[in-house]
Nucleic acid binder design. Structure first.
Lengths: 219, 219
DNA sequence: TAACCGAAACTGTAGTACAGTTCAACTGTA
DNA sequence: TACAGTTGAACTGTACTACAGTTTCGGTTA
């Protein structure tokens, strides 16, 4: 334990900070889906060079929140039924694969803890917190796969999904959310892997269905 | 079937083309792991602006072949034992998850076909072609998961792996390769999912072991 | 041998410029 | 009125220049 522990120099580039900031804004719904990020406007507003903005947006592309179109620049991703379904299919495959494994004790603890935090958040009724805890619970399940690469990939899916949930302002009653997740947790804790897989599948099915209804209502 | 099918204008930017070209070179082993991509040098040699190279390298970062270090620019990724193991763990999870499912007939056909092409390649003895077919076979297995997002993710893993195999110039005898994959294929065709999972696990275990030996020998 | 130092090389960022593309408003025509 | 054609402003893609700060490396000194 050195006296210098925790001391760190700010080791990041302007572009990286801009990318982080933009990502935050986008996730918060400041730019809707399909919105074009205009370089010169942003550069002027933030007082940086267009070069730097371009680079920031390229970094942003890594997180999947925007994609580039030739001669149109960066565009905020938009949820289409196909995209949402693909997203949930990937989630379902990963989570059920995880549920089919036997979690180590500390993994089981992590899942249980995530559930408890979800319950807490549900009791406050804060939509944003509930969604976060909801996603964290699922992330804890995927962690049973014991693969950091898959953890990261799943986190990326989650980030994208988080954005869609925001722009579609989807929300369920907190009680329902807790109830559904309790079923999953119980199945995992009891060690009934088939039931755990089935519960996850059901949970995801209802989610994707609800989202697609929302999309239809908009489209 | 329109009369315009297949007609396409060249719709790509200079940066994108540069990124593609660089990726190809890197995959072919032109730049070793840890190699720094010096912007001005590349820009001068190719007759483009440094801006454009920077952008190209950011695009390249998307594919995972390079990563950025502050004030050092882009560096070609390097295989460490941890990285290789993480790579194979992710592969193992995805492939076994796929093997635990029942493939649709056309998926089974695709896997079988991939195997036959692997055999063909093995008979020619061309290392490069064998590795390609090998990876394509596994990709066909993952396709059983029916998720384009996971297909893409797996393809990215494969790309990275392909690079490591190149720089480590790993090679096995073609007969061994074919034999191992035949075991996997048979288990899948027979519908014995537990055995398929076990065979894949064994196959990947031996691969990762061999690679780590190679890494130690270099280390 | 190892710590130190200074110059060279390189990155990160700013700023300017311009050709080519997109897009929406405007114009003329059937 | 509906629609094709035209025009111009806004924007992207790319090039070039410049410079401060960082890294690298070879030589120098302790």
């Amino acid at each position: 334990m050195s006296a210098l522990d925790g001391l760190e120099v700010r080791r990041t580039t302007t572009a990286q900070q801009l990318a982080d900031g933009l990502a935050e804004r986008i996730m918060a719904g400041a730019f809707g889906p399909g919105h074009r990020l205009r370089e010169s406007a942003i550069a002027a507003e933030l007082g940086v060079a267009r070069n730097t903005i371009r680079e920031a947006v390229r970094i942003l592309e890594l997180t999947g929140l925007v994609r580039y179109e030739v001669n149109r620049g960066a565009v905020v991703i938009a949820p289409t039924p196909e995209v949402v379904e693909a997203l949930y299919t990937a989630r379902e495959r990963l989570e059920t694969a995880a549920a089919a494994r036997t979690p180590r004790p500390e993994q089981l603890d992590a899942i249980t803890e995530a559930f408890e935090e979800l319950c807490e958040a549900a009791s406050t009724g804060e939509v944003r917190a509930i969604v976060d805890r909801d996603l964290a619970f699922h992330q804890a399940i995927v962690a049973v796969l014991d693969s950091t690469r898959l953890d990261e990939f799943y986190a990326a899916l989650t980030k994208e999904l988080r954005f869609y949930l925001t722009v579609l302002s989807k929300s369920e009653t907190p009680d329902e959310v807790v109830a559904q997740h309790r079923l999953i947790l119980d199945a995992i804790r009891v060690g009934d892997r088939d039931r755990a897989v089935a519960e996850i599948r059901a949970h995801i099915d209802t989610s994707v269905e609800q989202l697609e209804q929302l999309l239809d209502a908009r489209g």
